[in-house]
């Protein structure tokens, strides 16, 4: 994520080119590595980046998209400066994480998997983060908020909106 914020668009294009060139000889065998490094550069995998990778490695664009859409690790949408992750694991779910998610969505005006227009927030409905004792739990970047109720969401988000 850090790299995204410090690189200009041209620098990102250049960095991607270098990655592709480094792995080009390995063709489709290198697809996962290249996708991972590309996501480190861009923060996600825009369609034109997938196209460049496909052409560079000699793999069909459909196959690249097939891989990207299969693994949850790869993201098709940009991430915000603040990634709000709502744990949807079993413990959090029975403790009402669905209501928390809906509240976050309505407060930010975006759905899970989307990024706000100003690039500040994105929402990630994630699998169990291993903090079941704090259920229901959310994280905003590295900050953890546990034992939440939906009413607390606006004040928590407000801190980041102002930041």
């Amino acid at each position: 994520m850090g790299a995204t914020k410090t690189m200009t668009h041209d620098e990102m294009v250049q960095a991607l080119d270098q990655v592709i060139q480094r792995y080009a000889a390995n063709g489709r065998n290198a697809l996962m590595q290249v996708l991972q490094e590309a996501q480190n550069i861009y923060g996600y995998l825009p369609l034109n980046v997938q196209r460049s990778i496909a052409l560079g490695l000699g793999v069909s664009v459909a196959e690249v998209y097939g891989v990207v859409s299969f693994y949850s690790f790869f993201s098709l949408t940009p991430k915000g400066d603040y990634v709000v992750s709502i744990c949807m694991g079993t413990a959090c779910y029975v403790k009402g994480s669905q209501a928390i998610l809906e509240k976050v969505e309505s407060e930010l005006g975006i759905k899970a998997g989307e990024c706000s227009k100003d690039g500040k927030f994105s929402i990630n409905a994630c699998r169990c983060i291993g903090a079941c004792g704090l259920a229901p739990v959310i994280t905003i970047n590295d900050d953890v908020y546990g034992r939440l109720s939906a009413d607390e969401i606006p004040s928590i988000l407000a801190k980041y909106k102002e930041a």
Binding site: L47, Q50, A54, A62, Y65, G66
Partner: peptide
């Protein structure tokens, strides 16, 4: 040697289609 079709997504959402569906 064209491969415009591929498996997309995962689990119940899996479908076949061109890139980006």
């Amino acid at each position: 040697s064209i491969s415009v079709l591929s498996f997309l997504n995962r689990g119940f959402e899996t479908k076949i289609g061109p890139a980006y569906d």
